[in-house]
Design a binder for these strands. Sequence first.
DNA 1: CTTTAATTTGTAATCGATTTCCTTCTATTT
DNA 2: AAATAGAAGGAAATCGATTACAAATTAAAG
Lengths: 337, 337
Amino acid sequence: MATISEVAAKANVSVATVSRVLNGSCKVSEERRRRVLQAVEELQYEPNLVGRMLRKSETRTLLVVFSIMLPDLIRGIKDAAAAAGYEVILQYSPGPDTDASQFAMLYRGMADGAILPEIQIDRTLLASLYDHFTIVQCGETTNDPQAHVVAVNNEEIACQMTRYLIEQGRKRIATVGIGDCQGNPAYFSRERREGARRALAEIGIPLDRQLHLDVQTGYRGGAEAADYFLSLPERPDAIFCFQDTVAVGCMQSLRRQGVAVPEDIAVAGFDDLEICRFIDPPLTSVKQPFYEIGREAVRTWMIIHHDQPKRSIGRQVRLAARLVLRESTGGSPVVVD
Amino acid sequence: MATISEVAAKANVSVATVSRVLNGSCKVSEERRRRVLQAVEELQYEPNLVGRMLRKSETRTLLVVFSIMLPDLIRGIKDAAAAAGYEVILQYSPGPDTDASQFAMLYRGMADGAILPEIQIDRTLLASLYDHFTIVQCGETTNDPQAHVVAVNNEEIACQMTRYLIEQGRKRIATVGIGDCQGNPAYFSRERREGARRALAEIGIPLDRQLHLDVQTGYRGGAEAADYFLSLPERPDAIFCFQDTVAVGCMQSLRRQGVAVPEDIAVAGFDDLEICRFIDPPLTSVKQPFYEIGREAVRTWMIIHHDQPKRSIGRQVRLAARLVLRESTGGSPVVVD
DNA sequence: CTTTAATTTGTAATCGATTTCCTTCTATTT
DNA sequence: AAATAGAAGGAAATCGATTACAAATTAAAG
């Protein structure tokens, strides 16, 4: 790989001139500019990012730590970052709790800040990240007024979904949320459950503790939830899972035990992953605008990073989601806006 | 974030001494070492990777460009990289063809080399990558003897799967491979198809061109394949898809059109993703040892990078896969080693 | 008690880029 | 033709770490 001095030597100019040609400060004569560009071409020169980062004390790189792969969200992040001249580096953090090791890139100066999509993380660790860097969370929410969050309006859309289930004649409506290792529900689960509670309250049904539990993310968690509900003396007639993978696992376990979906128990999910259309019965879900969430998260990051005095009020963006109705909840399949 | 000079100032030593304490060259007096470690502790100092990379002209970072998310594979890569003292940065490259922009990190000096899991990529681009960097491919294969590849023995295991389908009484066995935008099949598809061909040849059935096609990766490709097969005058009685997502899409389309799986048509997949156990009927598949593939890919990278003269013979590692038999192919569900 | 060897420590160069500062050159004005 | 303003380009500092080399200190040997 060629360096700037090799380009300078080949073009017979100083390194300063090469840098000026490539970075726009346009006080370079046409003749020299041509020579430089030709040398760049011939040597296939690409400026070394490490050198630039060091000199500028800025990496122009965003760290994205994700726990579940949402292609549209990643695309939204990448597109918005590219538009702002930033690189993106991804870190995969499996498991319900994200630990400090995932942020080594941040602490060691390889990124200017981070976007945390759908990440559950210890409050203390999160606070220390906020102290040192610009951090934007998305998907997962929080009640911390200083946090920067981009997410859908969980409570509202969960309320709508629950109302829809009620319209379909369901009365014993269960919910399955996502919890971390210690069994604390994710904050988005609380919001969604609150929406469900509100819809039930509207028709005078109080919250039945038995019908609401939190599991770990993934198919297995859904299967466990189904087994639990089937063990109850009074089974639910609808199960609203706060993630599609959980709903898929739930449906599988119900079917295996001879329970018909949606006839005996309706099942709804959340996220509207592609799999929803490809399982049997197709799964009713909540479509999150993942691409827009990713894009907004980066825009928010840019705003905070450039304009914001440290540790002021958090910026919280809520986007609209919509119901996607399919066969798993009975009724006729439509998309409700 | 503190720098090495701040640590040096606080400990009242030179920066060289701080570096020596932290990098092991152990000729530092106990007294000074203690002072340095205390300053490091108090300032929460973490060496800046950008500075280190520049000085050492080495990033100790691997770029991983992936097109489909395989958690175990990523874990295998991360674990092996960490064991060798390397960082990993992920890049997501959706779509069937990976273009040069995904490798900017490499060309701009942010990584020493790359691992390419399940990546389909233009030969010319790949060759130019091999010219400049240490590259290891995994999952996807190639017939280039200079390439470094870690993968399962596709032909052998596909042959076994096809034999199993034949044992189950199937005779018209179709295959669905993965192709890129131009319709060229991925190399792993060719290998798997050759295995299927061999198994059919063993019982005297010649290859029927009509029964073998390539689609784009994902559920939709599988649905398209199913539609095509159902349009044939003589339908197949088994469909062997070379990716699980394709098989899932295929089954959905078959079911929607009233075709019973496995009674009318058996379906088998490849990869043994978690979803296989959670759809109905559970999907027979080929279990790839993804964690080991990731680990071997990194080990291979290290060997090539440190020992190898440029552009010598490629290192090709083949690992064993095994059949996972479930209801989608009839028969009794078992795992065959 | 000196001389020499061994060990520890600090100074300064280095990696590749950007940018400040200063010099050189050209063009304009009087 | 001289004076001055303005433009263009080069030399050198800078970012944060590592490390070769030189200097300083200590230990060992005579």
